[in-house]
Simulated assay, not measured.
Amino acid sequence: MTRLIIWRHGNTDWNADNRVQGQTDTPLNALGVEQADAAAALLAELKPDAIVASDLQRATRTAEALAALTGLPVCTDARLRERFYGQWQGLTMAEVAARFPTEHARWRNGDADPGCQVEALDDLAKRIGTAFQTAADANPGGTTVVATHGGGAKQGCGHLLGWGPPILRALGSLQNCHWTELRHDQVRGWQLRAHNVGPAAREPIPAAI
């Protein structure tokens, strides 16, 4: 049985401000570091065999908290970066709604390709889902922890599970430093075993941006 633990990074100041991060390389804040340490203590009990992370620092710093407890190296993969949000990156969602009302409305309604140079969901799902599969293939029969981003995590999991946007819209967003567990066997393929697991949250659930 191959197991993937898809782990969202800790809190950042941009999360706290509901500001669109996308592929902007923002650091963890003090709360995010605390969350990463708390989550790492729980994940270490799962005895992971490998750690892979997005190369954006909020994900790599999160992964390093687990590496410090397990002695495992952190391997980075740029394909695990968050969705590219184009013209929205750096803006609060209120600013996005004010400046790009048509595209924002399309995004809110689930349009997979809303415009403003925002990465299409199909492209995101294939990019991150392929990276997840690569991580799993490198450690068959083992447990791999993948530190990544909220929106990308959901779409990448959907790619492996064969779930399209209508199903994924019904799946709650990962909280900071929480994770989804997927398992794979040769008979049933990929299965969702757990979602939004992690230490107790200390802040409202932010948008997965």
Rank of each mutant, 00 (worst) to 15 (best):
V52P: 08
L69T: 10
Q23P: 04
D25F: 03
D49H: 12
D37W: 02
R83L: 08
P73E: 10
A30P: 08
A59E: 05
A63E: 10
G32A: 11
A36M: 04
L80I: 00
A41P: 00
E64A: 11
M93L: 13
G32Y: 09
E64L: 10
T92Y: 00
A65Q: 14
A65K: 14
V52D: 10
Q89S: 11
W88I: 03
A39T: 08
A30V: 08
A39R: 01
I51K: 02
L91Y: 00
S54P: 08
E64K: 14
A78R: 14
G90F: 01
G86A: 06
L66V: 06
L80Y: 01
L56A: 14
W88T: 01
G86I: 00
T70H: 06
D77R: 05
P48E: 06
T70Y: 08
L72V: 06
T92Q: 00
L72R: 13
Q87G: 02
F84Y: 13
P27T: 10
T24V: 14
T62H: 07
V33A: 11
T26R: 15
D37H: 12
P27I: 09
E45W: 01
T24N: 14
A30D: 15
I51F: 05
R81C: 07
A68H: 12
Q23H: 12
D55L: 09
A94Y: 00
Y85M: 09
E64H: 13
A38W: 00
W88C: 02
T60M: 10
Q57I: 12
R79M: 03
T62C: 04
Q89Y: 01
T76V: 13
P48R: 09
I51T: 06
Q57N: 10
R58H: 05
A67C: 12
A36W: 08
L43T: 09
A65G: 10
V52Y: 07
Q23C: 13
A38S: 04
E64P: 04
E64S: 08
T24F: 04
V33C: 07
E82V: 01
